[in-house]
Design a protein around this nucleic acid. Structure first.
Lengths: 150, 150
DNA sequence: AGGCAATCCGACCGTGCTGGTAGGATATGA
DNA sequence: TCATATCCTACCAGCACGGTCGGATTGCCT
């Protein structure tokens, strides 16, 4: 699998926050209930988003989370990266210094043919994540909730 | 990581085969030595490529492997898929019937906002893999072996 | 003041996947 | 018949991942 469940949960969480009116805190519990996700685990997820500066929080009663900036200004690449870390198609992309057998071609950085391939793939992924904003997803979810299942 | 080491090794193996003259078997041992990879493991890797019809083999002494068709006609998407299986950004993409918590939105197939995102990503990946042929990688590796490291 | 509702934090833990090994069976050219 | 190769299956150790738990802290509300 390319993305972890943290990414899935985190994106859903962001969409949920995007649906709320801004500046008004939404509790994690409300989101956990709405999405049917384990609260304790969501805490870890949202912590990453907070550290990345994507959401803000207020503690205490009636506290909660809200988007740090308008959904239109949030590219999904930032969300996913905050959740899953660097988007790397192959081990040698994330830290070249490890020198694991996996990429025995550390020496010939740009000469490794496979690296050409993985670079293209990485470009494809990042491009698609960069051109998708949170606002799009929010709008998508709003549109679809109106349509009855039957 | 997005792709497994099987993908890395398999792609390298294919490039290596692409560098050889066709119809003439190359032994796995030769490739393992050239790339510095464990032979026993390569056997598993190449088995997938064979089952996918990408390479052919001859057993016995002076046996080995060769490309089933010219490198120009091999899209890397087929190679990677043979090695790593279906390219799915998220669990619910590979088998929708599992109904794991991960995608509690099984019912609303096209309504899940995250699915919109993952679909775009998947598209980006597949497109980049489809537009890259093995021949390109082979040519790339040929060009670069001429340039001295110093 | 006290209690409740929240965020925060870190330790823990089972399970499945991944990368890799081992050993042998089978085929084939010299 | 021997060396060289593909082929096949079982096995294993490490580790990342998804998730739980317990508790500390914060702050509104009565």
């Amino acid at each position: 699998m390319i993305f972890s469940s943290k990414a899935e949960y985190g994106v859903r969480l962001m969409v949920e926050l995007g649906r709320q009116s801004p500046e008004q805190p939404t509790s994690l519990k409300a989101i956990a209930d709405a999405e049917g996700l384990p609260l304790a685990y969501l805490e870890q997820v949202v912590a990453r988003l907070r550290k990345a500066g994507l959401v803000m929080s207020a503690r205490g009663a009636h506290g909660g989370y809200w988007l740090a900036r308008p959904a239109e200004e949030i590219a999904m690449v930032d969300v996913v990266q905050a959740l899953d870390g660097v988007i790397a198609p192959m081990e040698c992309f994330v830290h070249d210094h490890t020198e694991r057998v996996l990429c025995s071609h550390v020496a010939d950085a740009g000469r490794c043919a496979t690296k050409l391939l993985w670079t293209r793939v990485q470009g494809g992924i990042i491009r698609s994540l960069q051109t998708t904003t949170l606002a799009e997803l929010v709008e998508f979810s709003r549109r679809n909730e109106l349509v009855p299942t039957a």
